[in-house]
């Protein structure tokens, strides 16, 4: 049961790890070491040079994300795998509310229902109501980041990939993001994330994978997990 959603990555570092279903694995390490690259390989924004990324999909069963077809990836991204980046890329002149509501529409939500779900989420993420109808392109860094989180949270993916999603958030908002992350985890969402601050990571991560402990020449390293909660 614990391994039902096993996920292992063997990227160019020749590293291996697995994430049990419903747990949070943090990735740590100095910048430039390849934290984001691992995440992007899982999401297939980067093409994996060698190795496998096994994911237990609801739809396809066990599937290697490094070789899945583009159509399978598109389907997984829409239905199972969420990804939050540091940067928000949206169509200009679409309101924040609609940006957040949009991912629900393919699931058969009416625009009104999707918007009302989006409102609740924006409220939880402490986005002032007067911004809801504003355009995210005009928002501050922290506001944009929260829109980005809301966009990923709203569909409650099975696997959520987080790439420094809280970099420019104030403490209150961080707490509220943490609360949501914990809640999602309890509901079974598996997460892999890179956080810039250890505090944040330690509060939510079940395992932390420290890339500094890998010796690149060593091809047989299975990383020790530290900070187990």
């Amino acid at each position: 049961m614990a391994l039902a959603n096993e996920l292992s990555v063997t990227p160019f570092h020749d590293i291996t790890f697995h994430v049990p279903e419903g747990t949070f694995m943090g990735i740590a390490g100095p910048s430039g070491i390849g934290k984001s690259s691992i995440l992007k390989c899982i999401y297939r924004t980067y093409i994996t040079t060698s190795g496998n990324i096994w994911y237990k999909s609801l739809r396809y069963g066990e599937i290697d994300l490094s070789t899945a077809t583009e159509r399978q990836m598109i389907h997984l991204r829409k239905n199972e795998i969420g990804y939050v980046t540091q940067f928000l890329k949206v169509i200009p002149r679409v309101s924040a509310l609609d940006v957040v509501a949009e991912p629900l529409l393919p699931f058969g939500y009416s625009l009104e229902d999707a918007r009302s779900a989006a409102r609740k989420l924006l409220e939880r993420l402490l986005i002032p109501e007067e911004l809801w109808n504003g355009f995210p392109a005009t928002f501050s860094g922290g506001e944009r980041q929260r829109i980005n989180l809301a966009k990923a949270f709203i569909v409650r993916p099975r696997l959520l990939i987080l790439d420094e999603p809280t970099a420019s958030l104030d403490n209150d908002t961080k707490q509220s993001v943490l609360a949501i992350l914990k809640e999602m985890k309890e509901q079974g969402t598996t997460m892999i994330g890179v956080f810039h601050d250890w505090d944040m990571m330690e509060q939510v991560a079940d395992n932390i994978y420290d890339l500094r402990s890998i010796k690149r020449e060593d091809h047989n390293n299975v990383l020790e997990v530290r900070g187990q909660k």
């Binding site: 989420l121 409650r156 999602m184 509901q187």
Partner: peptide, 10 residues
Amino acid sequence: MAIEPLQMSK
């Protein structure tokens, strides 16, 4: 608020 898990239609 609880975020509802999504069910895919048949």
